[in-house]
Design a binder for these strands. Sequence first.
DNA 1: ATAGGGTTAG
Length: 618
Amino acid sequence: MATGRSLVRRVASTPWNARLRELASQSLFSESITLYRSMLRSGSSPDAFSYPFTLKSCAALSLPVSGQQLHCHVIREGCVAEPFVLTALISMYCKCGLVEGARKLFDENTQSHQLGVCYNALISGYTANAKVADATCLFRTMKERCVSVDSVTMLGLVPVCTVPDYIWFGMSLHGECVRLGIDSELAVLNSFITMYMKCGSVESGRRLFDGVPVKGLITWNAVISGYAQNGLAYDVLELYEEMKSYGVRPDPVTLVSVLSSCAHLGAQRIGQEVEKLVEANGFVSNVFVSNALISMYARCGNLAKARGVFDVMPVRSLVSWTAMIGCYGMHGMAETGLKLFDDMIRNGIRPDKTVFVMVLSTCSHSGLTNKGLELFDAMKREYKLEPGPEHYACVVDLLGRAGRIDEACEFIESMPIEPDGAVWGALLGACKIHKNVDMAEVAFAKVIELEPMNIGYYVLMSNIYTDSNNQEGIWRIRVMMRERGFKKEPGYSYVEHKGRVHLFLAGDRSHEQTEEVYRMLDELETSVMEIEGNTDCDRCGEVSSSTREHSERLAVAFAILKTSPGAEILVIKNLRVCEDCHVFIKMVSKIVDRRFVVRDASRFHYFEDGLCSCKDYW
DNA sequence: ATAGGGTTAG
């Protein structure tokens, strides 16, 4: 081809270049690569003006082979030294995940050492490929060589500061931007807002956001997704409304965060509104959006709709399968979930660690002990995945629930990695179910060493002592808790009503209809043969308040008051529904003849006609 | 004429 081509009369490349540029600027990347190919076929030879566009297309589509081919052409045409071409090549290698190749190019062409854009391309390449040390190191080199740092350098560098350890570095960068006078550029502000949010400094991020005079869509998205990532689902919905009131139109990124917050809060009505918007704007083909829809419907208890979204997706990602499988697990439908897992494998999708967490916990919730152990084995042997602490915790849970406590202990001892709090916590939970006080004390000592501030474990241990009538033990736990000075009760529940989410806290009286809610609660309690008690509730963490004021009861009472007879009631609880409340809701479902769906931290409970879907309450 | 950049899920 090459020799043949040189015989063909060379045609001026300018019209080709203009078209290449047009396509690339419209993000029609594969079209631009096709055009480049026909350009070669027609006998016109590309020049230094053709490559940047074509390389950019390879970068955008992550096509390393085509990119390297282009690199060869560049060498043949002798224009590697051309700054625009060199930078485009470096960027292409980075975007295709070949950072070493990019670095080699950078080192070999020393003229790039004075070009800020080359540093910028390489730094953002390091950042995108999680090479934090290389990124910061190159930034230092850049300054040593007196190459000027600009806002694009910052945009490439700031995203490395997304772990709390790097927040100081991030703040120093912020200071540097002020000195350079680029701290008011919108993109720079956006990247710092994101940085603070990802480090968990939600207030700092919000303060920066409030100070931005003209906010862009990404500015709004940065805070909305930051709230979502920090579990502030309520604030997400609030800010989303505010954003719309300013006339800013949400994009798929916004809607993904909003949907995930609806999932969190059980706000199906709001989620459905978002789905309408998704359809109206043609975002249905966006995999992120569809995955978020699946998870929203699943976590709102609407399995059929979740499956409906899943079934019509033209392209499913691993995340789509994982969300769907996890959703069957939460609903106690282990068979369907495991069948879907098999389907996934048959479809040639390689499982990852997360999907294994889903299938393993599905097995343990449904008592499929051996099936779970089999899968754990297959994970290591067949799929060559290194189990993490979360997988070990699942296996301990699997063995523990089945009453195989000794095996669970041996398993922990044989672990090649250090067990974390969740592993010992799973053992502690098993000891509660099977009333093994001695082992519980061992597990408890370990677990509070690893997670001293997790209140749930203290409550669990206290309840194990309660079950065995060990007054001294109960007292000891109380003292420990007092010493550690636990603050307010973290138990809360949500109910959605008329497109608004109502939040209830244990013993809380700040809800606008508190009077009515408590009256209804009293009424229900008179009807139910109430088990009075001030015992600490197992795992639900709502300590030292009477169980009769637990958040899920307030939510139930409110929902009965507000919704029409016959309507199903969905209550979301952040922790676990305690035994007392479980019994209470069961009885209420008979008295008021309503169906209750309660989603707690790990699964769904269905209450109807005095019965509950789960035999064993967790 | 041409290069480098910010937000997204289980």
